[in-house]
Nucleic acid binder design. Sequence first.
DNA 1: TCTCTCACTTC
DNA 2: TGAAGTGAGAG
Length: 743
Amino acid sequence: MREPALAASAMAYHPFHAPRPADFPMSAFLAAAQPSFFPALALPPGALAKPLPDPGLAGAAAAAAAAAAAAEAGLHVSALGPHPPAAHLRSLKSLEPEDEVEDDPKVTLEAKELWDQFHKLGTEMVITKSGRRMFPPFKVRVSGLDKKAKYILLMDIVAADDCRYKFHNSRWMVAGKADPEMPKRMYIHPDSPATGEQWMAKPVAFHKLKLTNNISDKHGFADVPPGGGSFFFGGGSLHLYLSQAPGKWERGTILNSMHKYQPRFHIVRANDILKLPYSTFRTYVFPETDFIAVTAYQNDKITQLKIDNNPFAKGFRDTGNGRREKRKQLTLPSLRLYEEHCKPERDGAESDASSCDPAPAREPPASPGSAPSPLRLHRTRAEEKCAADSDPEPERLSEERAGPALGRSPALDSGSPPRLTEPERARERRSPERGKEPAESGGDGPFGLRSLEKERAEARRKDDGRKEAGEGKEPGLAPLVVQTDSASPLGAGHLPGLAFSGHLHGQQFFGPLGAGQPLFLHPGQFAMGPGAFSAMGMGHLLASVAGGGGGGGGGGPGTATGLDAGGLGPAASAASTPAPFPFHLSQHMLASQGIPMPTFGGLFPYPYTYMAAAAAAASALPATSAAAAAAAAAGSLSRSHFLGSARPRLRFSPYQIPVTIPPSTSLLTTGLAAEGSKAAGSNSREPSPLPELALRKVGAPSRGALSPSGSAKEAASELQSIQRLVSGLENQRALSPGRESPK
DNA sequence: TCTCTCACTTC
DNA sequence: TGAAGTGAGAG
């Protein structure tokens, strides 16, 4: 092994792993933690967020060019490739995941009825600079885990399609192509890792996860409030950010306003986060949890639903004495009269209702049981629209999305929780345009009627709720439908990490190294809760880094508190630099994990930035690069592989590198083809040629896309950057006394 | 569209 | 008691 490989091997060491390997000098570690380190490898996400020219020959050519450039430059970047060298693997032996998964996890979405209600209207989630929680909260119940085994539970939110939306005429409709994706993060449940028994004991809530649109830095570094920090982990990042409130660690996932997203839940059987990259991810998607991110609510019905169900919005309820009502009373005499008329009844009806309780199910006809999931259905079409033409097509999408609800009369009307005054309020506070919304004006009757209807609806919705729960919804289990048909939105290339099966309801998707079924669902970036740190014994490292001062800054006293649960020591608290402190971990991890976010038609999330670099590096590996190039030339290996698989389970290893395919490609067919083509698949523990291929396709080509005429040059330049970085690390390592290069 | 402040709520 | 989470509404 060449020296560089050793260096890279050291880099592969996870900064949060304790104890720090002898061959990984803290100086190098700190260097890696320097904010400047990461950017050096990064490309502007926007640049990468472009469709790949062609996953086939073009990719191969670009990869070849990169390889040539690398060779010419004499760069020692092989170790930065996607596959850890054998020695490296040996050194990480202890990090290998459990061998076979003997458990059979089942995941159920909590408050499904509530989600369903929102889903029918096209759920909106407010995103703010400081971050907003999801509502309804994403909460799942897990069963079937090995009680003794430890698991890491994660969640991420990925783009559901590559469209941008607008709310027009009370409907959500496609408004064009999606903006470049924001840096993606994976949120590791703060209790991770914990035993199966612990996870199964109670619902697993991800309510701490916050949604934000706050990225002040395109590289994803500054997207944290003052005092925040990011941990780059394996090419992605272990992203944490500190809220401005000392002592509070918060996690944020960056979303684009007016874009649709799909939360995903992952179960990883691993007792250490270090094993994450080598472990099998089982991913669960609940179609009813998709939503459109907004900075301000668009759909009054959603607003009202939230107000009615979110405890924190109680002040806005009709029954409350919140400002909203008070204001109204001051400004709207007619409403005041109306409310006086309704109040007693409303009070009676709601006084006891827990705001957290699932709201009544609504509009039976729109129930998922009777029709394809709106999400699935519409997404496919929307996708077509997006791909072909971003011209909005007013009716279709929203109809599909909202089902009968928006199509004819407001769902709220016939079904349920619409509050009596909602329409009036809407008119009052919304622009004239909104007031004209057909659905609203058509559906809302006179006060009296509304009132009566509401009563009926109240009664009805209970029934419906029961029915829904008991009938078409597979009560209790497997709420998610993932299907094999290409109509599946997730399968249509938008949520590449998923495998779809007609009978696989909301069940897991394994990404497969061995099976050769890459599950491209693993974001390379993670956000973690404090608990996770402690559990993983990373506290001391954080402290070290922070204390080391170098790149560190962890954020002040708050840091300590925040990580406190995480065992962050005094050292960390001592570091009060508010600057972000990215930790660069390992290129190969990056390669494997960094790609995974869904990339629509080549819209690469941040991690791809790394990939580009890694890809170039990978090309320096003669053996693998050749194979990769060949594979790339062969074409269509794509992230849709998983789709082609009818097998209910796909073993997924984050080391798999996804490849993008033209948006128009049929996932199903591509997947099938791909499956065949990669039949020679590798074992999940071994480096597979696929990653290389992926790297080329994802990395090199994208570079090519950036600068079609100078991809080789760029690659060379990129590689030189890498070389500088690597040599920098090497130097630091060399300077570090008492450190022997592992051989 | 987005950001900020506000009054209100929960915890 | 106060931090934090809400939507409204102004700008």
